[in-house]
């Protein structure tokens, strides 16, 4: 009788642990999705501002072309190529900003200020997202999670390698 009780107890404990791990993993997946959605919105905004800058007097025709191209690429890129496309956009913006600041009118100044505020936010959003991804990956590597397939059919989150220093 007693052995059965002990076995039953441990079985319950194991079941509780499985349910706990599944809930934990589910929450992490949710966090990856929301943090990505957040980052995505910010990046789209940045591409929009880049286009606006490209169409303003701030940019000469050549850099305007470069910037427009980079912005469209960043918008259309698949999630896996996204970081490369965004880095391209960062580079194009950097080129323009390094010499464009001197002769900017007031409205253009406002645009640039918006861009720098956005950049600060993107930096935070990236760190939040990469953190969510790495903790999810860590939990998914756990023995229990792999053996009992607690992740179900959810795809392994893509690590977004966006170097924040190029922003």
């Amino acid at each position: 009788m007693r052995t059965w009780l002990t076995v039953g107890f441990f079985l319950l404990l194991a079941l509780w642990y499985l349910s706990f791990s599944a809930a934990r993993l589910d929450r992490l997946h949710h966090r990856v999705e929301t943090s990505w959605a957040n980052l995505d919105v910010l990046l789209q905004k940045r591409a929009a501002i880049a286009l606006e800058i490209a169409h303003s007097d701030l940019a000469d025709p050549a850099s305007s072309m470069l910037l427009t191209g980079a912005a469209y690429q960043a918008r259309d890129a698949e999630i896996k190529n996204r970081s490369m496309a965004e880095s391209g956009l960062s580079g194009a913006l950097g080129l323009l900003l390094s010499d464009g600041l001197a002769h900017a009118t007031e409205s253009e100044q406002a645009l640039l200020q918006e861009l720098s505020a956005l950049t600060a936010k993107i930096r935070i959003a990236i760190s939040i997202h990469t953190d969510a991804v790495s903790s999810t990956v860590m939990v998914r590597k756990k023995f229990v999670v792999r053996t009992f397939r607690l992740a179900g059919n959810a795809p392994l989150p893509v690590k977004y390698e966006f170097e924040s220093d190029v922003l």
């Binding site: 949710h30 929301t34 959605a37 957040n38 600060a120 936010k121 935070i124 959003a125």
Partner: peptide
């Protein structure tokens, strides 16, 4: 801005 990001989707 941290708050803003934390409440997205919640």
């Amino acid at each position: 801005s941290i708050y803003e990001m934390a409440i997205v989707g919640g």
